[in-house]
Simulated assay, not measured.
Amino acid sequence: LPIVGLAHSPIAQRRMALYRGVVSVLFDTREMAATELNVRALAELQARGIAAQGDQVILTRGDHMNAHGGTNTLKILSVA
């Protein structure tokens, strides 16, 4: 299964690229509510052909964006 890292900056994108099996995608998360982030992330994956309608995606993120080590949320989402 593909592992996709949505990076908020080119620096984060380059760091993610060091992990084996991870595809990093530049994705702007500034000034975005959590529900909007979920919808836009799924739309980005669909646009890139990574996810299709009916797929399930595990999304992890932090409540405080740009905080190192702040991942505290895991959601299983269905692509509509």
Results as ranks from 00 to 15, higher is better:
L1P: 11
P2W: 01
P2Q: 11
I3G: 08
V4P: 10
V4D: 07
G5M: 10
G5V: 10
G5H: 13
G5D: 07
L6C: 08
L6A: 08
L6Y: 00
A7Q: 06
A7H: 02
A7L: 04
H8Q: 15
H8S: 15
S9E: 00
S9L: 02
P10Q: 13
P10E: 14
P10T: 12
I11Y: 07
A12T: 15
A12K: 14
A12V: 10
A12Y: 00
A12F: 00
Q13I: 02
Q13L: 12
Q13S: 15
R14F: 04
R15K: 11
R15P: 01
M16S: 07
L18V: 15
Y19H: 12
Y19C: 13
V22R: 10
V22W: 09
V22H: 07
V23W: 08
V23M: 14
S24E: 03
V25K: 06
V25R: 09
V25P: 03
V25T: 10
L26F: 09
L26N: 08
L26G: 07
F27I: 11
F27Y: 06
D28T: 05
T29N: 11
T29K: 14
R30Y: 00
E31V: 03
E31S: 09
E31D: 14
E31N: 10
M32K: 14
A34N: 01
A34Q: 06
A34G: 01
T35C: 01
T35G: 02
L37N: 04
L37D: 01
N38V: 05
R40K: 10
R40E: 04
A41M: 08
A41C: 08
A41T: 03
L42T: 00
L42M: 05
A43D: 07
E44R: 09
L45A: 07
G49F: 03
G49M: 04
I50Y: 05
A51Q: 07
A51H: 05
A52N: 10
A52E: 13
A52V: 09
A52T: 13
Q53R: 11
G54A: 05
G54N: 04
G54R: 11
G54F: 03
D55S: 09
D55P: 04
Q56K: 11
Q56P: 06
I58D: 13
I58E: 14
L59P: 09
R61F: 08
R61I: 04
R61Q: 12
G62I: 05
D63N: 12
H64V: 13
H64D: 10
M65N: 15
M65C: 13
M65Y: 07
N66F: 01
N66Q: 12
N66W: 00
H68L: 14
H68G: 03
H68P: 05
H68N: 10
G70S: 11
G70I: 01
G70P: 05
T71D: 01
N72H: 06
N72Q: 06
N72K: 08
T73W: 04
L74P: 01
K75T: 03
K75C: 06
I76W: 07
I76F: 09
I76H: 14
L77A: 06
S78F: 01
S78Q: 11
V79Q: 06
V79A: 04
A80E: 15
A80Q: 14
A80F: 11
